[in-house]
Amino acid sequence: MTTRFIEIMVGLFVVLGILALFMLAMKVSNLSGLTRSDSYEISAYFENVGGLKVRSPVTVAGVRVGQVTGIVYNSDRYEAQVSMRIGVMHDYFPIDTTASIYTAGLLGEQYVALEPGAEDDVLKTGDTIEFTQSALVLEEIIGKIVVKLTSG
């Protein structure tokens, strides 16, 4: 067992460890997410965000274009303010774009779906989406059904 052999093996060991860490960073977690330079931020107000979380996806026509970066309650509007970061390659959203919160699958995670409008002006950094549709809350729907059944 020469020193040379031991040093080569230890070197390989360290390389293997770094490769594994690289895989955990790039492939398992989302380090390769959007950075400040290649994205812009817009926000939308929702009456109810349901189970939406920070880092939930933002999609257009089912294609992921960005992610939710913050959810805070705005006490002036009595609504939840959702900030979203969108990749710069998707900078063509008209200002009358609609934002809705949907659920992926029956029990899946919630996401923001954007539906482009028809105006010529497009959304820029700091703009707010005016047309929104809140998350469906199962209890509310059940409540409505119960009211309908009992009143009729």
């Binding site: 594994a20 860490l21 398992v28």
Partner: peptide, 13 residues
């Protein structure tokens, strides 16, 4: 050991 932990996790995935 931390290197082994990282390798174990990556190989496990």
């Amino acid at each position: 050991m931390p290197l082994l932990t990282i390798i174990f996790t990556a190989v496990g995935i």
